[in-house]
Nucleic acid binder design. Structure first.
Lengths: 118, 118
DNA sequence: TCAATATATCGATTATCTTGGATATATTGA
DNA sequence: TCAATATATCCAAGATAATCGATATATTGA
């Protein structure tokens, strides 16, 4: 991750339809959803959503795989990790205690044992 | 955090000068830097940087405090946490194991014990 | 090969963002 | 109060992005 790809990722998420599409795909991990289904659920024209999905994919935030006539999109959680990590990287290196809130958030919310607490 | 404020945060970081300003402030936690110093270090005109800082502040990613003639800006790491948390929230609820990579990243990089490993 | 289905690309219009000169406001010391 | 310093706001030009109708491409079953 570098400045250019970070800009791509933040730009990709800085648009309502794309942000919601990404969050929809996050909720549908690990199965993903076909492009048309995403467009339908978010009530966005098919071609508009197709452009948006292409932007998310170029930014490394979603991945696509053709399944017969459909193209299935999936969220790339790793993309979020890379993006966030880039954002706070030197904070961690120099003053690790400052990132504690981030660790706390993901530790308490995302580990299987404590998931129902969030 | 909701869709609107998430869009504000992502938009704020989706611009080179603002992204670098934020990362500069992250590296200068917890002291912060005066507005003029940020502009100078990133080689951006003072008024342009002032607009950018205002956008980051409105997005909740930085905070300002006047110190005599200077305005000191500081990164709000919590802002990053809120933003990232919003992005993957329902993934955590439904399938917590999918967020494991995020937890792993921050746990291994940002805790005091393992900080030098990153 | 043809029709049906699913998705992607093209292109033009409209809207939004970025930039920085000029200028305003805020604070301090003399 | 005045000059110096630090930051913010205004505004207009240029650049960039969003939207969606029309159309192209890809895949399947008949």
């Amino acid at each position: 991750m570098n400045s250019v790809s970070a800009i791509d990722a933040f730009s990709a998420l800085a648009q309502p339809s794309r942000l919601e599409a990404f969050r929809l795909l996050v909720r549908h991990e690990p199965d993903g959803l076909p492009a048309g289904e995403i467009a339908r659920r978010l009530d966005v024209p098919q071609n508009t959503m197709s452009s948006h999905l292409a932007i998310l994919a170029r930014a490394g935030l979603i991945a696509s795989e053709r399944h017969s006539r459909s193209v299935i999109y999936r969220a790339r959680i790793d993309g979020v990790r890379e993006m966030t990590s880039f954002l706070v990287s030197d904070c961690c290196g120099g003053n690790p205690e400052l990132c504690a809130p981030l660790v706390a958030e993901f530790s308490s919310c995302c580990t299987p044992e404590t998931a129902n607490a969030c």
